Computed example of a mutant assay.
Amino acid sequence: MMIVRHAAHRDLDDIYRLAQRAGESGIGLTSLPENKEILAERITRTHHTLDGLAEKCDASYLFVLEDTSIQKIVGVSAIEVAVGLKEPFYNFRVATQVHASKALNVYKTLDTLFLSNDHTGCSELCTLFLDPEYRKNQNGKFLSKVRFLFIAAFRSFFEERLIAEMRGFSDQNGHSPFWDALGYHFFNMDFATADYLSGIGQKVFIAELMPRFPVYVDLLTSEARAVIAEMHPHTLPAAKVLMSEGLKYQGYVDIFDAGPTLEANTADLRAVKESRLFKVNMTEQVETTEIHYLVANDQYKDYRVLLINNKVDQGNTLRLTAAQAQALNVNEQDEVRVLALEKMEKN
Rank of each mutant, 00 (worst) to 15 (best):
Q285M: 03
N297E: 12
N309Y: 04
L339E: 12
V336W: 11
K279N: 13
N316K: 10
G315V: 02
Q326T: 04
E335R: 02
A322E: 14
A296D: 11
H292N: 14
A322F: 02
L341G: 02
T317S: 14
E342N: 15
K311L: 09
Q285D: 03
N281H: 12
T317D: 13
E335P: 00
Q314Y: 09
E284V: 05
D298F: 02
H292L: 05
K343V: 03
D302C: 04
I291E: 15
L306A: 07
K311G: 11
E335N: 10
Q324R: 05
T321R: 13
V295D: 10
K301F: 01
L306V: 10
D334L: 00
E332H: 08
M282I: 13
E290R: 11
T289R: 07
N309V: 04
I291V: 08
H292E: 12
N297L: 03
L307K: 14
Q324K: 08
L339W: 12
L307R: 14
A296G: 13
L328T: 02
E287D: 07
D313K: 09
L328V: 07
H292Y: 15
R337Q: 09
K343Q: 15
A327Q: 15
A323I: 12
V280N: 05
K343H: 12
H292P: 06
D313H: 12
Y300M: 15
Q326Y: 06
D334T: 01
V338G: 12
Q314S: 05
R304Y: 01
L294Q: 11
K301L: 00
E332R: 14
T289F: 04
L306T: 00
D298Q: 14
T288M: 03
Q299R: 08
E342C: 04
R319W: 02
L306Q: 08
Q326W: 00
A322P: 04
T321M: 07
I308M: 10
A340T: 12
Q326V: 00
A340N: 11
V330S: 01
Q333H: 06
E335G: 00
